[in-house]
Amino acid sequence: MSEWWTYALSDFLLFSPRTYYRLFALHNAALWPAHLLALALGLAGVWMLVRPASWHGRALAAGLAAHWLWVAWTFLLVRYATINWGAGYIAAGFVAEAVLLLVLGALGNRIPPATGPGWTGQGGTDMGWPRALGIGLVLFALLLQPLAGPLAGRALAEAELFGMAPDPTVTATLGVLVAAKRIRWEMLAIPLLWCAISGATLWAMEAPDAVLMPAVGVLSLSAALARSFGGRRGTAAG
C-alpha cells in the first residue's frame, strides 16, 4: 500500500457500527438457546480452574477448541464475512488456535490449571495474582463482558456472549492460559492478536468500550510475562 501513513484507522472500516452490531443480534436470534449451554460449559470450566484435577487441562483445552471452531464457523464465516472480506483470514486464525488447543492442550496436556492457596491436591503451589487474574478473566467473560455492549448503549439483543461471539471467547481463553501451570506463548499469540484487532475495530467505530479487549490483552500479557520471567519461584513442576 502506498502512502500508508496517510490512512486513518477509519479508512479501513468497511461497515457501519449499526451493521456490525446487528450481526450479533441476528447471530443471537439464530442460535438461541445455545448460549445457555455455552454458559454452563464455561461455568464448569471455572470449577475446573478452581479445583484442578489431572484431566482438567485436557478438558478445558478441548472445550475451548470447540468454542473457537464454533465461533469461526457460525460467526466469522457465516456472519462477519458478509461485511468484511478479511473475515476469512480471521476465521483461519481462529481455526489455527483451535488446532493448537486440541493438539497441545487436549492431546499434549500442556495447559493444566495451576493450583491455588489451600489446595492440597496435585502437589502444586500458589501462582499468586496471575492465577487469580486468569480465573477472574474467565468469570468476567462469562458474566460481565456480555453486559459491556448494553452498558455502552447498545441493545441487549446485540450482546456478545461467551462461546458465540469472539471477544468473550477470547477473554475466557486468555484466562485459562494465564491460569495454567506454565505459560504457553504459542497458544497466547492469536488471542492477543485478536485483542488488538477487536480494539482497533471498535476504536474505528468510536465505540465507548473500544478499550476493553486491548485492556484484557494487556492484563493477560502482563500476567504471562510475570509468570514467565518473574514467577519462576512460584511455578510448579510440570
Partner: peptide
C-alpha cells in the same frame, strides 16, 4: 461505501 455493506441482513 460503508452504507450498502449490510451483508445478508434482510431488514437493512
Amino acid at each position: 461505501w460503508i452504507t450498502f455493506n449490510v451483508g445478508e441482513d434482510a431488514e437493512a
